[in-house]
C-alpha cells in the first residue's frame, strides 16, 4: 500500500494525465455513437440558445428584411444561372436528343449564423434554424456565391453546419467544362480534389460544381474555380487546388436548400444520418 502511495505522490501528474488522455481518446473513438451525438445535440442547442441572444444584440436590425429578400433573390438567381449553364452544356452534348425535363424544385430557408468556431481543420457554424423549420442533417447550405457546407446535425431551434473547410467534409464534384468528376475535401489548409487521372482535361480557371452523383448534394451548386494543378508532369494522378467562391470565414447569412428527394433514394443515401440521429 505504501508503494502505491509513493508512486502516486511521485507520479500523480503523469497518472492523471494518462487517465484523462485515455478518457479523451475513448470519447474521440465513440464520437459517432448515437448517445454521444444526442448528448452533443442537446448541449450545443443549449449553448446556441445563449449565443443567439448575444448574437442578436451584436447585429443591427436595420434593413434586415430588405436584405433578406435581396439575398434570397440573389441566391435564387445564382441557382437559376447555374442551372442554365448546366442546360447550355447539356444542350450542346445532347442537341440531337430530347431535353431532360427538370423536376427539381428548390425551397430556400433563410438562416443567420449565430456563432462560428474556427480551427485549421474544422470550421463549424451554428445556425438559428433547426428541426422546427424543417431543417435536417444532410441539407445543403448556400449563399449567393455558392456552397457553404451541409447541415451536420440539428436541434429543435438550431443547426450545425459542417463547412467546406472541415476535414470530414467530402463531396463529389465535377468540372463544369470537361465533366470530369472527383472527390473534394479540405486538407487542413486547402480545398483539394485528389487523385484525378492525368487524362482528365482540367484547366486552370475551370468552374467546379457539386455533382449529381453526390449522395448528399445531388444538385449542381457552385464550389469554386481551379486555382492550381499540383505536379502535372509527375505520377499517374493529379491533385487540383480549388479556390472557393464563398469566403467561408466572412459568411453571416445563408440559405438552407430544403429539397424533397425521392423517399427510397433518401432512405438509402442518408441512412447513416438516420442511424446516427
Amino acid at each position: 500500500m505504501r508503494i502505491f502511495g509513493n508512486i502516486w505522490t511521485q507520479f500523480k501528474e503523469y497518472l492523471v494525465l494518462i487517465l484523462l488522455l485515455l478518457i479523451s481518446v475513448f470519447f474521440i473513438s465513440h464520437s459517432d455513437h448515437r448517445s454521444v451525438k444526442n448528448l452533443k445535440t442537446t448541449t450545443f442547442g443549449a449553448f446556441a440558445f445563449v449565443s443567439s441572444i448575444f448574437s442578436d444584440a451584436l447585429h443591427t436590425a436595420g434593413l434586415k428584411n430588405e436584405n433578406e429578400k435581396l439575398r434570397k433573390q440573389n441566391a435564387e438567381l445564382m441557382l437559376e444561372i447555374n442551372k442554365l449553364r448546366e442546360f447550355g452544356i447539356e444542350n450542346v452534348e445532347l442537341k440531337n436528343l430530347l431535353s431532360v425535363k427538370d423536376t427539381i424544385s428548390y425551397q430556400l430557408i433563410p438562416a443567420k449564423i449565430i456563432s462560428k468556431s474556427f480551427s485549421a481543420d474544422q470550421t463549424i457554424f451554428t445556425l438559428n434554424k433547426g428541426n422546427d423549420e424543417g431543417i435536417k442533417a444532410g441539407m445543403a447550405v448556400i449563399t449567393g456565391e455558392g456552397l457553404v457546407g451541409i447541415i451536420e446535425r440539428s436541434s429543435d431551434d438550431f443547426s450545425l453546419i459542417r463547412t467546406l473547410k472541415h476535414t470530414n467534409f467530402r463531396v463529389v464534384v465535377k468540372d463544369q467544362r470537361s465533366r470530369f468528376q472527383g472527390i473534394l475535401h479540405w486538407s487542413g489548409s486547402q480545398l483539394i480534389i485528389s487523385n484525378l487521372p492525368k487524362t482528365s482535361e482540367i484547366k486552370l480557371g475551370d468552374r467546379i460544381v457539386t455533382s449529381e452523383l453526390s449522395s448528399l448534394i445531388g444538385q449542381p451548386f457552385p464550389i469554386g474555380i481551379v486555382k492550381k494543378i499540383i505536379n502535372p508532369d509527375e505520377g499517374y494522378f493529379n491533385n487540383v487546388l480549388i479556390k472557393p467562391f464563398v469566403e467561408i470565414e466572412k459568411v453571416e447569412n445563408v440559405f438552407i436548400v430544403a429539397t424533397i428527394p425521392h423517399k427510397i433514394k433518401n432512405s438509402i443515401e442518408l441512412n447513416f444520418y438516420n442511424n446516427g440521429n
Binding site: 474521440i28 465513440h30 448528448l39 452533443k40 446535425r153
Partner: peptide
C-alpha cells in the same frame, strides 16, 4: 460540447 467539434479532441 459548445462548438460541435469532435468530442474528445479539445479535451
Amino acid at each position: 460540447f459548445s462548438t460541435g467539434s469532435i468530442l474528445g479532441s479539445s479535451m
